[in-house]
């Protein structure tokens, strides 16, 4: 257990199921959010961007935590699989953060009258984007995998201070950004007709993150293990 070969086999069995669940959730959530959910009485239809914006921010931040935990495991136990997970989180997280920033910006224009303000929430998410890009670039800058992983692991861990800053930025500093709509400890202020599609989209994007992480890690494992007998057997069987 925990070996690349075991992981490759077991993840191959999960892949189609996660794909089916992901696609169903995202299709249902998008149609519901775009066409069936009622219009917001203050923001009009622009609020429909929330069904992309909030889920992508959640996944961008959780993805960073996955990367930082994998980084800690890489540094402490030098586990191969954790190293691969850390490396693969970076492009996925960068993509999610890009969507979060872009959707926020395009939501800001009709609601705040501007695409961008340099306030704490927006700036800290921009830093998150640069941290992801930093990990990708740093990995590429090293010749050997071991030094690259070590450097990236340290960067990921140091950068994780940004996550609580993003979370509490709207409470610590004055911000144009509205406070959280969804709270774990309190009842949501959102109407159920708007809330259900949002929850479906959040679940869908989390499943997509899992799916993407499986696809990227499997691909990375194949390349790294190409000299081994089990990968050669896979190649011969193709």
């Amino acid at each position: 257990m925990g070996s690349p070969r075991w992981y490759y086999q077991i993840s191959g069995q999960w892949l189609p199921w996660i794909a089916i669940v992901t696609v169903s959730l995202l299709v249902v959530g998008s149609i519901w959010g775009l066409a069936i959910a009622p219009m917001d009485f203050r923001q009009g239809n622009s609020y429909r961007i929330i069904y992309i914006h909030v889920p992508s921010v959640f996944v961008a931040m959780s993805g960073y935590m996955v990367m930082a935990i994998a980084a800690a495991i890489t540094l402490i136990w030098k586990m191969k699989l954790a190293e691969v997970v850390m490396k693969c989180c970076a492009p996925i997280g960068a993509g999610m953060t890009f969507i979060a920033l872009l959707s926020g910006s395009l939501w800001g224009k009709p609601t705040w009258g501007t695409y961008w303000v340099w306030d704490a929430r927006l700036t800290s998410v921009l830093i998150l984007f640069f941290l992801y890009l930093g990990v990708i670039a740093l990995y590429e800058a090293f010749e050997d995998n071991i030094s690259a992983s070590k450097a990236c692991a340290i960067l990921s861990l140091v950068g994780s201070v940004n996550i609580p800053i993003i979370h509490w930025s709207v409470e610590w500093w004055n911000s144009l950004h509205q406070p959280a709509t969804l709270k774990l400890t309190e009842e949501s202020t959102m109407h159920p007709d708007m809330l259900y599609p949002l929850l479906i989209m959040i679940a869908g994007l989390y499943c997509l993150f899992a799916l993407l992480l499986l696809l990227h890690t499997r691909s990375e494992i194949l390349v790294r293990e190409r000299g081994t007998k089990w990968v050669k057997e896979l190649i011969a069987a193709k």
Binding site: S30, M39, N45, R48, I49, I92, P110
Partner: peptide
Amino acid sequence: TMGGHGVYVWTVYGIALLVLSALV
């Protein structure tokens, strides 16, 4: 058109689809 907000909403959904498909 979404009451004038269509451009923003559809651009967001379009680019999200593009980025996510690229990642897949």
